[in-house]
Design a protein around this nucleic acid. Structure first.
Length: 883
DNA sequence: AAAGTCACG
DNA sequence: ACGTACGTGACTTTA
């Protein structure tokens, strides 16, 4: 069957113009409307596969409508020149892509489209009209669908008669009556004053048409009756104006609109001229056509939920890759919309509802949950968590290509499936952004399009898995993936779905205390400032401090005065207000992030907070925590630390148990550097900062005062961070010279550490990367930069990453082993959190004895180093007490 | 969306 | 001479 796509050229160009940033070519000519138009064209060509295609434009200023009503479109703003000068380009583009276009003096694009759609309908063609103009809905029929752009242009909503009925309760024809009653300010169509969409719909639902409404004007009440009677003529005229004229003398024949694809060479030349880089890439510039979207391999696609559940059942044993489409960032509240399974021969797709509920999907659900059925996947973590909340489980992950990609290069920018496919050359895959849109424009497209995209994702996973696995093997990270990261995914999922019980009332009560305190402080600050201002605005605060009160400017930011804690600290002696501001900042932080923020994250049903750990974010191999971040709950200041009191066990009589590694990073450093003195210190389990002070200052233990220990501690931090005299001087508030001396003294004593630092930088320069104990890698291309800053940064990173990363490796090992132990021993205790060097559990009373012995033991024995690892354990009624 | 700030290890 | 300590996430204001 023939299918024609009709585009309302002016409408779409307008939308694109206003929706997109003002992109321009090197000649300074704005091209955003053409660009937006082009991406839409390409998408329609690909997704609709039309046999015919036409773009209609408005022509001339006056149309037949102006003869009836001079003010028609009277108030409309002039088309800005930045847009009107894009129309010639647009025409050129359409010609270049062999897409027919049409315009006719005296008629608008919608009249042309109305006429052509009528002709196409009479030939029993399928018609898709693309526009931003709701008036066009009047053309909808069984054969004619209207795609309305929403907000931008990437999002389209399709309307047939059924959708119009659903949305307005009207037949397509009645759209004209709707407009007749309510008018249209943008076209300067009056309608009946005071009648908006609500009233108009009510009237139409009752009487059906403008004429009938007018006939029954007498039975209306009050003001409405008055208005309808008075403006009857306006209504009739408005309806006329809104009626699309479907008898335009279009000399073009339907056959003239046939579309048979475009010439790639011509398109390339056009895109080059217009400087559409991303579109050129899609075409595969530089003569490389392999990855262009027009030439993707065809897939044998079976919609298991609608046509082939039996086929799938018999194919299940051969499925190699699975893709679950999870919508949303937070898997604890995410929607799963569909699944795709790839055997290598065919891809089977299904809507999630079917997977979740259909009897036909029972064997598929079993297969998903079967640890003995290996399956490749992208982001098993997200899938496992999202599925959990729907009562489904996923086991038997063979290769998680997201994890594999992360290990191969944790700092690569784009770790989406599409990005990985491109990087590893396994074929072109549309990005989710292209298919779904992003931000406010995000929308799940039609089922067919979605199924296709999901299928292609499953295929992308299938192709990537062996490639990435081989690379991992070559780089010595197969075990890191299979024995650490993938098992950890399951452990994390369990921790997250278990969640941490929170005393909501306690949180709210503390919030009220803070509100009262904040109130007082704010008033005080305003009084001292002599005016009220937005304390949360660094800009306004800066004006008060540095202009009104004349305090010295310590530091500037890109945009103005700096007012951060360090600056305020220096300003404190100058004015009383400063310490108040510091206090305000502290409490405001608690209130917004840790009271209000956390309250929002408590699940109604369970009274728990479920964080989501991200396993593929940190460049060093650490985890990160989101929604909410439970790795940065206050502890350093007592006021903040109190927050931890609301984190309680989920069962009565249970306790919170926490165990943290003592000095794990310096112990790791002792191990990998082999420095004898550092090793010695840990073998004798000495206080490392005191020991450092003794060695650096050359004094006895009893001669180390608090200040010396503090300075030594800062030096140790500096060592771990990749030391620089400048950084240390900043931290200790001393001169760079003094800092440099400290460092020199340190290196004189800890020669092994010094050696390690120089070696690791050399190695990074030679190999281009540094590694952790478990062979985790981080590439540091900037280690060769000529820019001092870039290079220095890379050098510090080279020193820090093996330390921080190895510590991350170790606690990951401990977590996996801990989970195993709990299962083996049949313990009911549950692991809840990881905070980089700390694990938190909830423990039944009767397991307290075993757990306070077992947890540190597992942590300490997770791996054997040249120095002992040490973990301290504590427990209490809540997280605060476990200190 | 970026910048500034601050919470944690 | 150069001028930053390493790694994260959340909130608020502002452009």
């Amino acid at each position: 069957m023939n299918k024609i796509v009709l585009i309302d050229g002016n409408s779409i160009a307008n939308r694109a113009f206003y929706a997109l940033p003002p992109l321009s070519n090197s000649a300074g000519m704005q091209t955003n409307a053409v660009y937006g138009f082009t991406t839409m064209l390409l998408r329609l060509l690909e997704e609709e596969q039309p046999t015919h295609f036409l773009v209609a434009f408005d022509a001339g200023k006056a149309t037949f409508r102006h003869q009836d009503y001079k003010e028609y479109k009277g108030h409309r703003m002039k088309t800005p020149p930045e847009l009107s000068e894009q129309f010639p380009l647009l025409r050129e583009l359409l010609d270049g892509l062999s897409i027919s276009r049409f315009e006719l003096e005296g008629y608008e694009a919608d009249d042309i489209i109305g006429t052509i759609s009528r002709l196409a309908e009479s030939q029993k063609w399928q018609v898709l009209i693309v526009t931003g103009d709701k008036d066009m809905l009047q053309l909808a029929s069984n054969q004619v669908t209207i795609a309305l752009t929403r907000k931008g242009i990437s999002e389209m909503e399709r309307y047939g008669p059924a959708e119009i009925q659903e949305k307005y309760g009207l037949a397509p024809k009645q759209i004209i009556d709707l407009k007749g009653l309510m008018g249209d300010a943008s076209d300067n169509i009056p309608g009946i004053p005071g009648v908006g969409e609500k009233t108009a719909l009510k009237l139409l639902h009752e009487y059906g048409s403008v004429e009938e409404v007018l006939t029954h004007a007498d039975s209306l009440k009050g003001k409405l009756k008055e208005r309808v009677t008075e403006h009857a003529e306006d209504a009739r005229m408005s309806k006329d104006l809104a009626t699309i004229f479907r008898e335009v003398p279009v000399e073009l024949k339907l056959e003239d609109m046939s579309y048979g694809g475009y010439d790639q060479g011509a398109a390339r030349e056009l895109f080059r001229k217009l400087e559409f880089k991303s579109l050129l890439e899609r075409l595969g510039d530089a003569g490389d056509d392999a990855g262009s979207p027009q030439e993707v391999e065809s897939l044998q696609l079976v919609r298991a939920d609608v046509e082939g559940s039996e086929q799938l059942e018999s194919a299940l044993e051969r499925v190699q890759a699975v893709h679950l489409e999870v919508i949303g960032e937070n898997p604890h509240e995410a929607e799963v919309i569909g699944i795709a399974l790839d055997t290598g021969d065919a891809v089977y797709t299904a809507a999630f509802d079917w997977l979740k509920q259909s009897e036909q999907a029972a064997s598929l659900r079993q297969w998903l949950a079967d640890a003995e059925k290996p399956k490749h996947i992208y982001d098993s973590h997200k899938a496992i968590v999202a599925l959990h909340w729907h009562g489904l489980s996923l086991e038997g992950v063979a290769v998680d290509v997201l994890l594999a990609g992360y290990l191969l290069d944790p700092t690569q920018g784009d770790d989406t499936l599409s990005g990985l496919s491109q990087r590893y050359g396994t074929g072109w895959l549309a990005s989710d952004e292209e298919v779904f849109g992003k931000g406010a424009k995000f929308k799940v497209p039609d089922e067919a399009i979605t199924a296709n995209h999901l299928a292609r994702k499953a295929r992308a996973v299938l192709k990537l898995a062996p490639v990435l696995k081989e690379k991992l093997e070559a780089d010595g990270m197969r075990s890191l993936l299979e024995d650490v990261e993938m098992p950890l995914t399951r452990t994390l999922s369990r921790m997250e779905t278990t969640g941490f019980k929170v005393d909501k009332a306690g949180l709210v009560a503390y919030g009220q205390e803070l509100t009262a305190q904040l109130d007082t402080i704010v008033k005080d600050i305003y009084a001292q400032a002599g005016e009220e201002f937005n304390l949360n605005s660094p800009k306004q605060l800066g004006e008060i401090l540095f202009e009104k009160l004349g305090l010295p400017v310590v530091k500037k930011t890109k945009t103005g005065y700096s007012t951060d804690a360090e600056v305020l600290d220096k300003l404190a002696p100058h004015h009383e207000i400063v310490s108040q501001i510091v206090h305000y900042r502290q409490l405001a932080k608690l209130q917004s992030t840790y009271i209000e923020g956390l309250v929002k994250e408590i699940r109604e049903k369970t009274g728990k907070i479920h964080t989501y750990y991200r396993q593929t974010i940190a460049a060093t191999g650490r985890l990160s925590s989101q929604f909410p971040n439970l790795q940065n709950i206050p502890i350093r200041m007592e006021e903040g630390r109190k927050i931890r009191k609301v984190f309680v066990p989920s069962e009565p009589g249970w306790q919170v148990l926490a165990a943290d590694y003592s000095q794990i990073e310096l112990r790791v450093l002792a191990h990998i550097s082999g420095d004898p003195r550092l090793k010695e210190a840990f073998i004798h389990d000495m206080d490392i900062h005191t020991k450092t002070a003794m060695d650096v200052f050359g004094v006895h233990a009893d001669e180390v005062d608090a200040n010396m220990r503090r300075q030594a501690k800062a030096v140790n931090f500096g060592i771990v961070y990749g030391i620089s005299d400048y950084g240390l001087s900043q931290n200790l508030n001393i001169t760079r010279k003094e800092a440099a001396q400290f460092i020199e003294q340190y290196f004189a004593v800890f020669e092994g550490v010094k050696q390690f630092m120089t070696d690791i930088v050399k190695q990074a320069r030679k190999d281009g990367y540094v590694s952790t104990l478990l062979h985790r890698r981080r590439y540091l291309p900037e280690i060769k930069a000529s820019n001092f800053n870039q290079r220095s940064f890379a050098e510090r990173t080279a020193m820090n990453t093996p330390i921080q990363g190895t510590a991350a490796d170790i606690i990951k090992l401990a977590m996996v082993q801990m989970e195993e132990k709990l299962r083996e021993e049949g313990l009911r205790s549950r692991m809840l959190l990881q905070v980089h060097d700390e694990l938190v559990f909830e423990v039944p009373e009767e397991e307290l004895g075993i757990m306070k012995q077992l947890v540190p033991q597992v942590m300490e024995q997770a791996i054997e180093l040249d120095v002992p690892l040490k973990a301290d354990v504590s427990y209490g009624q809540n997280w605060y007490e476990a200190k």
